[in-house]
Computed example of a mutant assay.
Amino acid sequence: MSDSEVHGTVGDGFEAVREEFARAVDPGSGAQLAVYAHGRRVVDLWSGDPVTGDTLTGVYSATKGAATVTVAVLVQDGALELDRPVAHHWPEFAAAGKDRITLRDVLTHRSGVIGVDGGLTADELADDEVIARRLARQRPYWRPGSAYGYGGFVTFAIVGEVVRRATGRSLREHFEERVRAPHGLDLHLGLPEALEDRYREVLPGVASPEELASFWADVPGPHSLTGIGYALNSTPPLDQVAFLNTRRVRALGQASGGGVGNARGLAGLYAAAVFGLDGRDPLLDPDTVGEFAMLHSTGRDLVTGEAGQYSLGFQAKGARYPFLSANAFGHNGSAGAESFADPLLGVAFGYTRRRFAFDWSYPEHDRLAAAVTSAARETSAQ
């Protein structure tokens, strides 16, 4: 892709980020990149027709970052306690040996509750309250606390039910009122009908028949822990591409993977949480940031293999990208979104793309994050 096909602006000292965006990003992906440095937007780029900086698309599990910021606000308020059992607020959840699972266990993927026997249909997966009712009866897939494994589509249905019972309001309502609306973020847990004209459908990945055959030969079966964690154990298995291209999913905005937004919204989320936006104080105080950025689950993930490493609700980005600070945190999404904050460096990063990679591999993440980090360090040193 040539630099002339890249649209948008960069601030002084971040010109190399634009150049790397032009080199690293597939022009057919429909990508956006936004970066804040110490609360000021310094990168705002996009490419690919018909994508603009305002375009909204499905961010999948990057949604978990928005949900976790909301939970962190409620913990900071004293409305939630991380080490209190889920069943304290939600007695039905105690069934089948889940009585001692805490909110911290759930947020760090240590609960063993990653799906249900027989699977959840796409229609059920659209609605967190339906998911929660099914999960209440489910026995964990491993002894809680003994290991960790990613629950891609269900984890925040548990969290949301705790929020609803503890506060009398939904996680989505708290996000809207405490996080999204005050900062005007283009990131939605429940996309309003009035914004549907800005949504662009997520597209499937493109690969040769040989590449696809090689990829699928190594994919675990639908009833393995990986299959259950990614909601592939239903009949038919979940079609991830179709999931957020369904209006009902976008309207309900389930908190594990149903969010809609853009790069500006993702970067703005982390800037608002850690550094403050538009003259506002940060949403989270340093102690809360420290608690939620702390590594909790390391080593092999029973669902994703070596791709895990979690802090509290977030992915531990300091473990993912060695050029970031140790306490960097955020969350990616399976269609190719990436987002994080590095509290020490002062950077908030948001990236989206409309097209899946057929193998869920996004090497541009490393290249763009490295370019942003290098520019941020150089400008800070001046």
Results as ranks from 00 to 15, higher is better:
F175W: 12
A136D: 14
A147E: 06
L187V: 10
V106N: 03
E173Q: 12
I101H: 05
H188Q: 10
F156N: 13
H109D: 06
D99K: 13
A95Q: 14
D105M: 15
E176Y: 01
L185P: 01
R134Q: 12
R139I: 00
V116R: 05
I158G: 01
H174L: 05
Y150E: 05
P140E: 13
Y148H: 15
D128A: 15
L107T: 05
V162M: 11
D117A: 15
H183I: 00
R169T: 08
Y141V: 06
A95M: 05
A96D: 15
W142Y: 10
V113D: 03
W142Q: 04
V116N: 07
D99G: 14
L171W: 01
E176S: 10
E173R: 09
R134M: 09
D123H: 11
G97R: 13
E176M: 00
G160V: 03
R180I: 06
E124S: 06
A157H: 04
T108R: 08
P182F: 04
F156W: 12
E129Q: 14
G119Y: 06
R133W: 04
Y141M: 12
V130L: 14
A95K: 09
E92N: 06
R137K: 14
R134G: 04
V159K: 03
R164W: 00
G152I: 03
Y150H: 08
R178E: 05
G145F: 09
R139K: 15
P140N: 13
D117P: 12
L187Q: 04
